[in-house]
Amino acid sequence: MDVSYLHHFGSAAATIFVVATATMRTMIPLRVFGIMANLLLIAISIPTHNYPTLVLHAVLLPVNIWRLRQMLQLVRDVKKSVNSDLSMEWLKPFMTKQKCNAGEILFYKDEKADRMFYIVSGRYRLVESGIELPVGALVGELGMLSPMGERTQTLECIEAGLVLSVTYAQVEELYVQNPEFGFFFLRLASARLFENIGTLEARLSQRDAPVTATVPAVQPA
């Protein structure tokens, strides 16, 4: 059986897929085209007995499928978070664990910022504002939006616990792969800013509130 035409067809098809993927800016269509190319080249490699190509794409196929599944799940989770409580659960698989001891400083004000943190356990305080962050809070993302890329406050651990960290470079990669993440991140940062402003305004109101002296009642003789 003459299978030379299959070889030429496969080469032409592979060239088309390579050119197509080079024009893509996001990861999901890139993975879809990768899966299609894997299937095509596997199908062509069997009758032509091109075993190196067969093995290569038999390995790449499940990798592309797994990565596509991750990206689709990420998009679903981001959409759910944007429309509900701004949860950061979807970001956990991309983060690194870090144990913290009481008195440890995670970062200082005005230092260069390169990562953000998700609080899993323990107690943490923003020193300058005195705001204590609850478990489940994300902190350090404002440094990414700062014009100078610097920390706006100091973060101190006041009770030993665990945090998860993710670098800004990883966050930028997620944004490139899933532009919807950018909208979520802006909503998250805005919510944090309004929360901090509200806390500071409440403290200023308490400080400036007039002190009312209590005059004891005069008991009749």
Rank of each mutant, 00 (worst) to 15 (best):
D2N: 13
D2Q: 10
L6D: 09
H7L: 13
S11F: 10
I16N: 07
V19D: 15
A20L: 11
A20C: 10
I28G: 01
L30H: 11
V32R: 12
V32P: 00
G34P: 01
M36L: 13
M36H: 04
L40D: 05
S45T: 02
T48S: 11
T48M: 09
N50V: 00
Y51H: 10
P52I: 02
L54M: 12
V55M: 12
L56P: 00
A58D: 08
L61K: 02
N64H: 13
I65E: 05
L68D: 03
R69P: 00
Q70W: 06
Q70R: 05
L72K: 11
R76Q: 09
K80Y: 13
S81E: 11
S81H: 01
S81W: 07
V82Q: 15
N83G: 13
S84K: 10
S84P: 01
D85W: 05
L86Y: 14
L86A: 06
S87A: 12
S87R: 07
M88I: 07
M95A: 12
K97Q: 10
Q98R: 14
K99V: 05
K99F: 12
C100N: 03
G103S: 11
G103Q: 04
E104L: 05
D110M: 04
E111K: 04
K112P: 01
A113V: 02
D114M: 05
R115Q: 15
R115E: 14
M116L: 13
M116F: 15
Y118I: 11
I119E: 04
S121R: 06
V127S: 05
V127E: 14
S129N: 04
G130I: 06
G130E: 06
E132S: 12
L133H: 05
L133N: 08
V135A: 13
A137D: 14
G143S: 07
M144D: 07
L145W: 15
L145G: 06
S146G: 04
M148G: 03
M148E: 14
M148Y: 14
E150G: 01
R151G: 02
R151P: 00
Q153H: 15
Q153V: 08
Q153N: 10
C157F: 12
C157Q: 05
A160G: 13
L162E: 15
V163F: 04
L164R: 12
Y168I: 04
Y168Q: 09
A169P: 00
A169Q: 14
V171G: 01
L174F: 02
N178P: 00
F181A: 01
F181C: 03
F184M: 02
R187K: 09
S190T: 08
R192W: 01
L193H: 02
L193V: 06
I197M: 08
L204V: 05
L204D: 06
S205G: 03
S205R: 11
Q206P: 00
D208Y: 04
D208S: 09
A209V: 01
P210I: 00
T212R: 01
T212F: 13
P216L: 06
A217C: 01
A221Q: 06
